[in-house]
Design a protein around this nucleic acid. Structure first.
Lengths: 152, 152
DNA sequence: ATTTGAATTGTTATAACATAACGAGACGTG
DNA sequence: CACGTCTCGTTATGTTATAACAATTCAAAT
């Protein structure tokens, strides 16, 4: 599935700019890198990409930028992979729920009202005040299943 | 909430023994440690506990045992904490879905038919063949909320 | 009973991921 | 300009996990 990266990056960058003055060049650059990666990237991958720009950044530089972007809902952390992925709809979904394909590596955000309801009901029954969710469903996406399937 | 550890460990140990000969003393010991921890423990915590038995185990020893126990469904990994927790109902639930309290640290497995259905439906709609789930809902449990709440 | 092969564990070293702590510069505000 | 705050650089280290290979165990087959 090819893809116009510039197009998919635009809304997220625009949302980021609307935050105000806090989107520094460094943070913007890190966001661009994560957006362009298009699949979850490790912090050290971001670091390596950043290094190609010329500077000699150290890990804290990247982790701080990622922390900021996460706090703004522009980037999500994929705990099951120690990786970070850009949010392509930062206006809408500020939850962190993903389908992950282990074959192509893609992450797609889940938006599902029935799931919202089931989670809310389960938490209520358990008496839990929810603060944070890590929902990562890993498998093989339809495209990868068909290409690796009967043929190959 | 006090708790009879021996009692809660029994079913899991029994299930483990029913696997057959593969539950070696080391693996059994690691399972006991994780069961006794009663909240998610880091691999290096397990390692330290194991070290008190007298040997001088190295990390791979613990990781291998944990891998085995995970494969048997006796232990689950909590990705959002880099930690491991024993499954207290290994016969029933082989999924990995948890409520986690950030105050007391307890992990409780979610068993909820509506959630099962919502997840299955969402995966089907997305065309994903599910292989693995990481579902970790973190918050404050009812007990901790009441003790830290109006009073303290 | 010995050989053989598979599984388990020990051991050393290192990779991968993440943060603590402190200092220097930028920047707006009073 | 003095001040405080936020951001970023820098050094060092902490934490989590695995690669690679040697040694051991143990059951099965001859």
């Amino acid at each position: 599935m090819s893809h116009d990266h510039a197009a998919c990056m635009a809304p997220s960058l625009k949302a980021a700019e609307n935050l105000g003055a806090k989107l520094t060049p460094l943070r913007r650059r890190v966001l661009e890198i994560v957006l362009a990666g298009h699949t979850p990237m490790g912090a050290y991958d971001v670091l390596a990409t950043l290094a190609r720009d010329g500077g000699k950044p150290a890990p804290p530089t990247v982790y701080r930028a990622l922390d900021f972007l996460q706090a703004q809902g522009l980037v999500h952390r994929i705990d099951s992979r120690n990786a970070f992925v850009a949010c392509f709809a930062p206006e809408r979904s500020h939850q962190s729920r993903f389908f992950l394909c282990r074959a192509c590596g893609r992450a797609s955000e889940i938006e599902d009202a029935a799931l919202d309801a089931a989670l809310a009901a389960a938490a209520k029954r358990a008496g839990l005040t929810v603060e944070r969710e890590t929902i990562e469903i890993t498998g093989v996406c339809a495209e990868c299943a068909s290409s690796h399937g009967p043929a190959a």
